[in-house]
Design a binder for these strands. Structure first.
Lengths: 218, 218
DNA sequence: GCAAGAAGTGAATCATGGTTCATATTTTGT
DNA sequence: ACAAAATATGAACCATGATTCACTTCTTGC
């Protein structure tokens, strides 16, 4: 025998793998999934087309991977908001919704790609999973809320799905035009708040069945 | 001159046009937009491939037309529910939501095609319009509700968008598996009611900020 | 019945863009 | 330095399915 994978090679391969993912992530964040083309992507990543296929079995698989990575970040942010906010279940859910929306409005193209862009069915399947992950986070929080008395008894699964639908849909509109300028001007930040507050309001009322008064938050 | 379009021809052309649309509508209702293929569609409609292009400039245009026709039916049903239900704004909105959901669950594949199927961007644009049409209907009804005192003051535009998001998303889940059997067994009808009530509940609470008690309805 | 003008046909064409593969280059152990 | 084994290359290939177009068939007015 005269060749065996060594650390040097292993790490180089890992680097290449990352280069590809980073390039893909960049394209998606900038233009969405439909702009991902293997030849172009290879160029951006500084490798040959064929090389892509040494790291991913297909474009679908590559895109799915990108989707999942991007998604993981968002989900964990929401999870974090849910976990780190002090207060009862209802308040924590409100904070999580705000986090979700703020992040989406701050990176509109990426958010649109993850939430609403028409994509290949395989990737779309990943999107369903992803929505379910969100829903499940909320579902747990709703149960907490019921337990601590901040939410009335209810079908937590359906309510959580409704929550996801509300934020997602409410953002699709703002996201579509916003997709042009990636910038974050002060006006945009302000107008974002204008959108977010009523959404959170609606969602919390839907959950609690009582008027929601916004607490102070930064 | 020796040829001028006559009524006979005109009506035959209209018939062909319809045959094509009907065939397309059938495929969509049965399999979704992605199963529409020009050659196949031509066969179903009993015409040649080329003929399709004498009636529609492109597949996109054809699909968009189909989408819009199917959509018009649904939108007008909701509009009807909104208009024909007696009661205050809130009650009429509840009735409209029920109508929307019931119809969707009764024709899951079509509903899925209109609401959630990954489709070509051009058709997808039509979908945005369609959601906005729904939202606008609800928006008007919300204003009515505010006026008649059944709803508190609120940003009707955002609330209406949230409503659309809630029902749409809440139905996507049930629609995905349901898409297999088109049938309408009694159990399905019952399980549909189980889904619909909580959704309407959530939506109405979101709008009113008070617990929603389901009124009697058939 | 005939010529002019349409409408209808469907096999051939074309565009797109993902995927392959014969070849070149690198790496490693001896 | 060399052979073995793997990785990298990118131009050629291929699959799909929409679109075209040269040709045929109808319609119509005279």
């Amino acid at each position: 025998m005269a060749y065996r994978e060594t650390d040097k090679v292993r790490s180089r391969k890992a680097q290449t793998f990352d280069k590809i993912l980073v390039a893909a992530l960049y394209v998606v964040a900038e233009q969405g999934f439909n702009s991902v083309q293997m030849a172009d992507l290879a160029k951006r990543a500084g490798v040959a087309t064929g090389t892509l296929y040494r790291y991913f079995p297909s474009k679908e698989a590559l895109c799915t991977e990108v989707f999942q990575r991007a998604t993981d970040v968002e989900v964990s942010k929401v999870q974090q908001a849910l976990a780190e906010t002090s207060g009862n279940g209802a308040e924590r859910i409100a904070a999580a919704l705000r986090t979700f929306a703020e992040r989406a409005l701050r990176a509109p193209t990426m958010a649109w790609a993850l939430i609403a862009e028409p994509v290949d069915p395989t990737v779309d399947q990943a999107r369903l999973d992803y929505r379910q992950r969100y829903a499940r986070l909320f579902e747990l929080a709703i149960h907490d809320g019921i337990r601590d008395g901040s939410l009335p008894e209810q079908n937590a699964q359906l309510s959580s799905t409704a929550l996801v639908g509300c934020i997602a849909e409410s953002l699709v509109g703002p996201l579509a035009p916003a997709r042009s300028q990636e910038v974050n001007s002060p006006e945009q930040t302000r107008s974002a708040a204008l959108i977010i507050a009523p959404i959170v309001n609606f969602c919390l009322q839907g959950l609690t069945g009582r008027p929601y008064e916004e607490k102070f938050h930064d």
